[in-house]
């Protein structure tokens, strides 16, 4: 599904908790579709959005679908730039140990499994966002 060979830098900003509103789930739906378009994709998780990537989510008590396992499949969609804001984690008493390990297989390196999740500071994140052509915030 190429668009006349144009490749833009698309950034999907995720800033809300996974449950309570539908933004996180519907953002993920956009990202999965976007992966088919051969664009340069980055995902950002900041503010309460960092909760989207936490391990051991259990939605049994709230009657919502637990879609958190989908994040670990992002590598299969060739999405390998997932940025988590360091300050957002710290402000919420979270560390990377609380987050899922997100990996992708590098086809240029004999399919070696590599990390796709990067914890970055606010200053670096602002630079990353500044480099994007299209920023979609959810």
């Amino acid at each position: 599904m190429e668009e006349e060979g144009i490749v833009k830098k698309f950034c999907y900003m995720n800033r809300k908790a996974p449950y309570g509103t539908i933004y996180a789930l519907e953002s993920l739906e956009v990202v999965l579709i976007a992966a088919a378009f051969d664009q340069d994709i980055s995902l950002v998780f900041a503010d309460d959005g960092v909760y989207q990537l936490t391990k051991n989510q259990d939605t049994d008590g709230i009657g919502m679908k637990n879609f958190s396992k989908t994040y670990s499949a992002l590598g299969d969609y060739d999405i390998k730039k997932i940025y988590v804001e360091k300050e957002s984690l710290e402000e919420r008493g979270l560390t990377t140990d609380d987050l899922q390990a997100l990996k992708y297989e590098d086809e240029d390196d004999d399919w070696a499994e590599k990390d796709s999740l990067f914890v970055v500071g606010r200053d670096e994140l602002s630079k990353i966002i500044n480099e994007q052509d299209v920023v979609l915030s959810f």
């Binding site: 956009v30 052509d133 299209v134 979609l136």
Partner: peptide, 21 residues
């Protein structure tokens, strides 16, 4: 139509402007 229309709008437009929360 599908979400592909959103991605296409991002590709084809000079600016994609979001109105929301």
């Amino acid at each position: 139509s599908g979400l592909g229309q959103l991605i296409e709008a991002g590709i084809q437009s000079d600016r994609l402007v979001t109105f929301g929360d």
